[in-house]
C-alpha cells in the first residue's frame, strides 16, 4: 500500500519579480508503506523541494497545469491549509535535518518532548515516550544534556529520537548524514535501517551520499526538477553492508 502518493507536483519559487526557478516540473511519486527510500540527485535537481512537499512543509503549486494530488494514506492533503498541514506534520510525520536542528536551550529530553507537545501529548505519558525514544537511539544517559554538550552524532540521534517519538507514519530526512563523519554517518544510517527493518518505519531520505543510497531499499534519482529513475525495490533479504549492528547502542 502506498503511504505517500503524489501526482502533478510542481513548485516554482519566485526569487524576484523577473527571476523564477522551476524547482519541480510535474513529479509523480509513490512511496510504499514500510519502504526506506533515498531521493538522490545533484544540487538544484529539486530533491529537497520534493521532500518539502512530501513533508507538507510546502504545498504544491495549484496553477499552470493539471491539479496536483498528494495522498497521505489515501487522504488528499495537497490543498490543505497551513494549519491542517502543521497538525499532520506534528502527529503523523517525523523530520530529521542536516544541521540536527535542536533547540539549544533545551535538554535532549526536552527537545524530544517538543514533538510530543506539538502532537498534543503531555505529562507522564510524553516523558515516558521521550525517554523510550532516547533509549532507542542509545542516548538514555544523555537525556539531561544540552545540545552543546553532545557530539554531532549524538545531536543527530537526539533529532532522530524527536522524529520517532510520536511513532509517525513516515520519517523524512534531509541530508541526515551531511554533517557527520563516515563513522557517525554509518551509525545514523544503521539506526534508520533498524527502525525500518524492525518496526516497519517508512523512511524517505534526501541525500548526496551514494553510501546512504546503497543502504536504502530503493533510490529515486532526480534531475532538473523531474524524476529520472524510480529505482528498483531491492529484495527485502538483501544484506546491508558496512553497517555495524552495535551502532545503535554505541
Amino acid at each position: 500500500m502506498a503511504i505517500l502518493e503524489g501526482r502533478n507536483l510542481r513548485k516554482t519559487y519566485r526569487l524576484s519579480r523577473r527571476n523564477t526557478v522551476e524547482a519541480l516540473k510535474g513529479v509523480e511519486i509513490s512511496i510504499e508503506s514500510g519502504e526506506m527510500v533515498a531521493i538522490m540527485g545533484p544540487s538544484g535537481s529539486g530533491k529537497s523541494t520534493l521532500m518539502h512537499i512530501l513533508g507538507l512543509l510546502h504545498a504544491p503549486d495549484p496553477n499552470h497545469g493539471p491539479a496536483p494530488e498528494l495522498y497521505l494514506a489515501g487522504e488528499n492533503v495537497a490543498t490543505l491549509s497551513d494549519n491542517a498541514r502543521t497538525k499532520i506534520r506534528a502527529r503523523r510525520m517525523g523530520f530529521v535535518f542536516q544541521d540536527f536542528n535542536l533547540v539549544p536551550t533545551l535538554t535532549a529530553l526536552e527537545n524530544v518532548l517538543l514533538a510530543c507537545d506539538y502532537a498534543g501529548i503531555r505529562g507522564k505519558q510524553a516523558k515516558q515516550a521521550g525517554l523510550d525514544a532516547l533509549a532507542l537511539v542509545g542516548l538514555a544517559d544523555r537525556a539531561d544534556h544540552k545540545p552543546a554538550e553532545l557530539s554531532g552524532g549524538e545531536q543527530q540521534r537526539v533529532a532522530i529520537a524527536r522524529a520517532l517519538v510520536n511513532k509517525p507514519e513516515i520519517i523524512l530526512a534531509d541530508e541526515p548524514t551531511g554533517n557527520l563523519d563516515s563513522d557517525r554517518s554509518a551509525e545514523v544510517l544503521a539506526l534508520f535501517r533498524e527502525f525500518n527493518r524492525e518496526h516497519g518505519q517508512t523512511i524517505v531520505l534526501v541525500t548526496h551520499d551514494s553510501e546512504v543510497g546503497e543502504a536504502c531499499d530503493r533510490v529515486i534519482r532526480m534531475r532538473d526538477g523531474r524524476i529520472r529513475d524510480y529505482g528498483q525495490r531491492a529484495a527485502a533479504a538483501t544484506p546491508v553492508m558496512a553497517i555495524p549492528a552495535v551502532a545503535a547502542t554505541a
Partner: peptide, 16 residues
Amino acid sequence: TREIGIKRAIGASRWR
C-alpha cells in the same frame, strides 16, 4: 529564526 523554523517544521502551529 532557525529555531522557529525547526519548531514549525516539527509541528508547532503559528498560534503556538
